[in-house]
Write a protein that binds this DNA or RNA. Structure first.
Length: 271
DNA sequence: AGAGGTACCTGGCAGC
DNA sequence: TGCTGCCAGGTACCTC
């Protein structure tokens, strides 16, 4: 997926076209996503005014007076605005059709994404209620990371990818942040000094901020809400660069597996 | 509670 | 060309 910068780029792209527009209806072509798209959503969303388009972690929230549509893009999902009459392609599973003549179209080949509907405060929804702090928010800092990591024996890479610790750090930016903070991905989270936690928090914040500024990272087929690709891929220091020279010291970038996911790092810079 | 593994699903690519 | 196996942005859920 879309990591946090891609989701935020999507949010910014679609918000002006969605907020203060009415949903005329919702078309579900393939309800079997991570969870079935609720029939109740299709029934109830007709005619509702979208009041806000927000993000919590990697979840997008379309708020209406009656309830909130929760969208997650999974690994391969994207949301784009299309003309209502644009023919649907193979993996175009859901359209949220708007009174503007446009539709918010969810495309998701792997179908790990989700479209859900809740009448309650979406932040209290079971998928969102245990999420850690926003990495770009005030609560997320070195002090927090230091406290949260005490006693944790898991490696620091999987630690920062744990959404209960902090949201929005996916597989790409985890490697990138650890590189910037010069921390070895295999290091046990609980072994980090406070100073290194501060460096790590800053690195996470910096890499995500830079990626959002660039409109996300384009890998394969990601495009933002306005259809423009992201440009951050060019700035990746280590991700996907096995064997290439470390931009700092020239040592060959290494790759390994952690929790079934690829990690990239400089064996010399990162300790 | 925490750590580690599995599962969900499709498509692209390398290698034979 | 076609087959097989591996890889891919996430995360809930299971067991130990």
């Amino acid at each position: 997926m879309p990591e946090l910068p891609e989701v935020e780029t999507t949010r910014r792209g679609i918000a002006p076209h969605v907020v203060r527009h009415r949903i005329t209806h919702i078309v579900v072509r393939h309800p079997q996503l991570r969870w079935p798209v609720p029939a109740e959503l299709v029934r109830e969303a007709k005619g509702l005014l979208v009041e806000a388009c927000e993000r919590r972690g990697k979840y997008l929230l379309l708020r209406t007076a009656k309830g909130t549509i929760i969208v997650h893009l999974g690994m391969s999902g994207s949301l784009r605005l299309v003309d209502d009459k644009t023919p649907a392609a193979k993996h175009d599973h859901v359209d949220i059709v708007l009174d503007s003549g446009q539709a918010l179209r969810l495309t998701d080949p792997r179908r790990f994404g989700a479209v859900l509907w809740t009448h309650e405060d979406p932040l209290q929804h079971e998928l969102l209620s245990d999420l850690g702090p926003e990495p770009l928010g005030m609560e997320f800092n070195g002090e927090y990371l230091y406290t949260a990591s005490r006693g944790r024996t898991v490696n620091v890479k999987q630690f920062i990818m744990d959404s209960k610790v902090v949201v929005g750090v996916g597989n790409i930016y985890a490697s990138e942040a650890l590189f910037l903070a010069r921390i070895h991905p295999s290091r046990k989270a609980g072994s980090l000094s406070k100073a290194r936690c501060e460096a790590l928090a800053e690195a996470i914040r910096n890499v995500l901020t830079a990626a959002i500024k660039q409109g996300g990272t384009t890998l394969r087929d990601f495009v933002g809400g306005d259809g423009k690709p992201g440009y951050f891929a060019q700035q990746l220091n280590v991700y996907g660069r096995t064997g290439e020279a470390c931009p700092v010291c020239g040592t060959a970038i290494k790759q390994m597996k952690q929790g079934q996911r690829s990690t990239y790092y400089c064996p010399r810079c990162q300790r």
